[in-house]
Computed example of a mutant assay.
Amino acid sequence: MPTVNAALDPYRHWTEHRDGVGSNPFRLASKVETGASVDEVSDAWSAHTLLPELEALWLTSREAWLFQDIDYGQWGLHILDPAAAAARTHAERARRPASFEPTDAVIGEFLGDTEVLVLDSNGGVLVALPLDTRTDWPQVASTLPEFLTRYLDAVGEKYWERP
C-alpha cells in the first residue's frame, strides 16, 4: 500500500476542471494545499495522540478538496485542516458521544451531504452517517492511503454505496 503522500499525489493532477467524469454530470477539480507545519498540527491536536498516517496527511497537505463540484459545491470531499478537524471532532463527540470514540478524528466532510470521514484509533476509515449509530457506519478502508486510492479510482463516487 502506498504512503499517504503517494496516495494523495495523483489528486494534484486533477486541478483542471473536467466535465462528466464517471457517472456524474458535474465539472470536477481537486485542490491539494501544501503541507501544514509540525507546530500547526501539534497545536491543533495537543490534547490527542495522532496516528502517524493522520500527521503524515497534514504534513503533506494542510487541506484538500477532492473531486469538488466547482459549479455547485454538491459533490466531493473536503479534507479539513488540522484546526478545523479538531473543532469538528470535538463538536461531533459532544453531539453524539455514544457514536464517537475519544480516539476518533473527523478528517473530512462530504460536500453537499452531512456525512463525515472518520479515522479511528486503528487507522480504519469510517463514514459517519448523520442519523445512524456507529455500528451502522461503513468502514470504507483499512488505512488512509487505501481510502485515498479507492476514492481516486472511483473518481469521487461513494464506492461503498455501490450495489
Score class of each variant (00 low, 15 high):
Leu66Ile: 00
Asp9Arg: 13
Arg162Ile: 12
Thr149Tyr: 05
Glu115Ser: 14
Gly76Glu: 00
Leu50Tyr: 02
Ser37Asp: 11
Asp19His: 02
Phe100Ile: 06
Thr49Asn: 14
Ile70Leu: 04
Gly112Asn: 07
Val127Glu: 05
Val155His: 03
Thr15Gln: 11
Gly123Val: 13
Met1Val: 12
Leu111Asp: 04
Leu111Ala: 03
Leu57Thr: 00
Gly35Glu: 05
Glu101Leu: 08
Ala85His: 00
Leu50Val: 14
Phe147Arg: 01
Pro97Trp: 13
Asp81Gln: 09
Trp14Leu: 12
Ala98His: 04
Leu28Asn: 00
Pro2Trp: 03
Pro163Arg: 14
Gln68Leu: 12
Asp132Gly: 08
Leu129Cys: 03
Leu119Ala: 09
Arg96Val: 06
Trp160Asn: 08
Thr114Ala: 13
Asn5Ala: 15
Arg62Thr: 08
Ala91Thr: 07
Lys31Ala: 12
Asp104Cys: 10
Val4Lys: 03
Asp71Ser: 11
Trp14Arg: 09
Trp45His: 06
Leu148Val: 02
Phe147Trp: 04
Ala83Asn: 03
Val127Pro: 01
Ser46Gln: 12
Thr103Gln: 13
Thr103Lys: 10
Lys158Gln: 14
Glu40Pro: 09
Gly73Lys: 06
Ala85Lys: 01
Pro2His: 09
Leu144Ser: 04
Ser61Pro: 08
Ala83Cys: 04
Gln74Phe: 07
Val116Ala: 10
Ser37His: 11
Tyr11Gly: 06
Phe147Asp: 03
Leu117Cys: 01
Ser99Arg: 01
Ser142Leu: 12
Ala105Tyr: 01
Pro2Val: 11
Asp69Arg: 00
His78Asn: 11
Pro145Gly: 06
Tyr159Thr: 13
Trp58Tyr: 11
Leu8His: 04
Leu50Asp: 09
Leu50Trp: 06
Tyr159Val: 13
Asp9Cys: 13
His17Ala: 14
Ser30Ala: 14
Glu157Gln: 15
Pro82Cys: 11
Glu55Asp: 08
Ser23Arg: 15
Gly76Arg: 00
Ile107Val: 06
Glu109Trp: 04
Asp9Asn: 14
Leu80Val: 10
Arg162Cys: 11
Ser37Val: 12
Arg18Gln: 11
Gly20Val: 15
Asp132Asn: 10
Ala128Ser: 09
Ser30Asp: 11
Val32Arg: 02
Tyr72Ala: 12
Ala7Asn: 03
Thr133Trp: 02
Thr34Pro: 02
